[in-house]
Design a protein around this nucleic acid. Sequence first.
DNA 1: CTAATTAAATGACCATTAGTCATTTAATTG
DNA 2: CAATTAAATGACTAATGGTCATTTAATTAG
Lengths: 222, 222
Amino acid sequence: MSKIERKEREKQLRRESIMNAAESVFFEKGLISSTMDEIAEKAELSKGTLYLYYRSKDDLYLGVICRGFDVLISKLSEAVSPNVSTIQKLLNIGSAYYNFSQNHTHYFRMFSFLESPQFHTMASKELLNESHNQSKRAWDVIIEVISNGIKDGTFRENIDPVQMAIILWSNATAIMKLKDRKDQFWIENLNVDIDTVLQKSNAMLVSTMLTENAKRFYQPKL
Amino acid sequence: MSKIERKEREKQLRRESIMNAAESVFFEKGLISSTMDEIAEKAELSKGTLYLYYRSKDDLYLGVICRGFDVLISKLSEAVSPNVSTIQKLLNIGSAYYNFSQNHTHYFRMFSFLESPQFHTMASKELLNESHNQSKRAWDVIIEVISNGIKDGTFRENIDPVQMAIILWSNATAIMKLKDRKDQFWIENLNVDIDTVLQKSNAMLVSTMLTENAKRFYQPKL
DNA sequence: CTAATTAAATGACCATTAGTCATTTAATTG
DNA sequence: CAATTAAATGACTAATGGTCATTTAATTAG
């Protein structure tokens, strides 16, 4: 019965068009200042209909976040696909994440939502799960690069790939968030270039991971 | 005229008692779920009166944050006051911040508020300024320790104290936040101990700061 | 001590907005 | 074409941050 299939497709399209509307409103106004009425208007639907497709405003927000993850994951995958050294792959990952934060700032910002337990009490289990899975997929890319780096002698034997992934990722995230902050009058006062800070912190962390042998081929600038 | 002084004192007391009420409600329910009515009830005042003393809910929240800063700053100051080596001072700062995040978790959590431009649009310039100043005071403690460390030969000459402070602080904050997250099912799955991660990341960063000479006296465990 | 004046506190009220649901409209089926 | 099912609507509710005319308390002047 193709009637049912068509229905299903149409339903999916509607969901997507609602997502599109939500995304553009959230991008423009952020979570708090966006209203369901505005999203409904942009989607050319009534508010009631929104709730036929998504359970809550938080769910819509999480849905957009999941789109952001799709973009990020694809960039990370690209970053590790070329046939290059472990070090180069790690550098590529760093660049990919940095470019993501610069070119998809809105998604990057929205990710913070997942970190404030405060703000996603209303989100549905399903969407929270989806976002968790995506987040895990992103981690796996990095963890694997580090694991391979240990095998191929780039990184020391006694480092833990998971721990190391957390350290590198957290560090990059924290510093990139700093760069994104608008109210950084004191940072301007202190006269720091955040890009330099990011670069240095990465170099510091990576340099302690390297084996003596690997250091002969790559010397991070501290 | 002591009448006026007394009035002033009473006004200050009222402000504080409102702050107390706000703090206990915010601690219990977080920013979003706390209502002005509830805070008013706890303060044994009407909602209208709250607005005679604070301009908005966000201002109340920021006020509580400033209290948190007071606590943190005093802990940091304590940490650097003993007459010990630079390394020990830096370790003390790390412990002080960690203990703060554990013993004053609510304050620690609230600090995130300052990082989401999203959520403090309504806060008054005065309170934002106060919080900025406090934040700067906290930074200064760390920056000074690092600066002195360079002078006394503990840290390399070519590191920038401000940059280094940002790196160490951001790293610690990011990882301590991770520990605080409730939805860390995937972290549990990955079987990582966040305390270890924090310790290692600190050791990695500090080890790259040390001069050859300093390394003879202190070997961070990587 | 009393009346007039000033200051402080109140809570009914307003505007906004997430979410609901009885009703309407459109599509499908027999 | 009528009957049935599915989809969409928007008026409505409840919650809540913030306001302001009114009331209450404190202070001052005579």
